[in-house]
Design a binder for these strands. Structure first.
Length: 103
DNA sequence: CGCCTGACGCAGG
DNA sequence: ACCTGCGCCAGGC
C-alpha cells in the first residue's frame, strides 16, 4: 500500500465514524494495521493535520479523549451537537469509542 | 545519511 | 490529574 493510499484509507475510515461516536488516532492506526501492514498513531495524527479538512475530523481524538489541539472549541461544539458523551472538555471514551465492524 | 519535529500512546513518579 | 521519558513512523532539511 502506497503512502497516498494509506492517507485515503485513513480518511475513508474517519468518514465511517457515526455521529456522536469517536475513534482515537491509535485505534485508527490499529484498525488499518491489518490492511496496511503498518500502525502508527503519530502517522494518523499527521495525516489528519494535513488532510483532515474534508472529513469529520472532530470525531478523531487522542486515547485520553482530548480534542485536537487548536480546534478544541470547534470540535467540542460539534460533538456536543451530535450528542457525544463529554466529561468536561474531553470525550468519555468508554462510552463514545467506536470501532468498524470487522469484515 | 543524521537530526529535529509532530492533531500519538503508555508506563512511572 | 499532571508532568516526564521513551518508543513509534514518516517528512523536511
Amino acid at each position: 500500500m502506497r503512502p497516498d493510499e494509506y492517507v485515503e484509507a485513513v480518511l475513508e475510515l474517519v468518514e465511517r465514524i457515526p455521529p456522536g461516536r469517536v475513534m482515537s488516532y491509535g485505534a485508527i492506526a490499529d484498525a488499518l494495521a491489518d490492511r496496511s501492514g503498518r500502525a502508527s498513531a503519530r502517522l494518523v495524527g499527521s495525516i489528519m493535520a494535513r488532510h483532515g479538512g474534508g472529513v469529520p475530523w472532530h470525531r478523531v481524538v487522542n486515547s485520553a479523549g482530548r480534542l485536537p489541539p487548536g480546534h478544541e472549541r470547534e470540535a467540542r461544539a460539534r460533538l456536543l451537537a451530535e450528542g457525544c458523551p463529554l466529561r468536561g472538555d474531553r470525550v468519555d471514551m468508554p462510552r463514545a469509542g467506536w470501532s468498524p465492524e470487522p469484515g
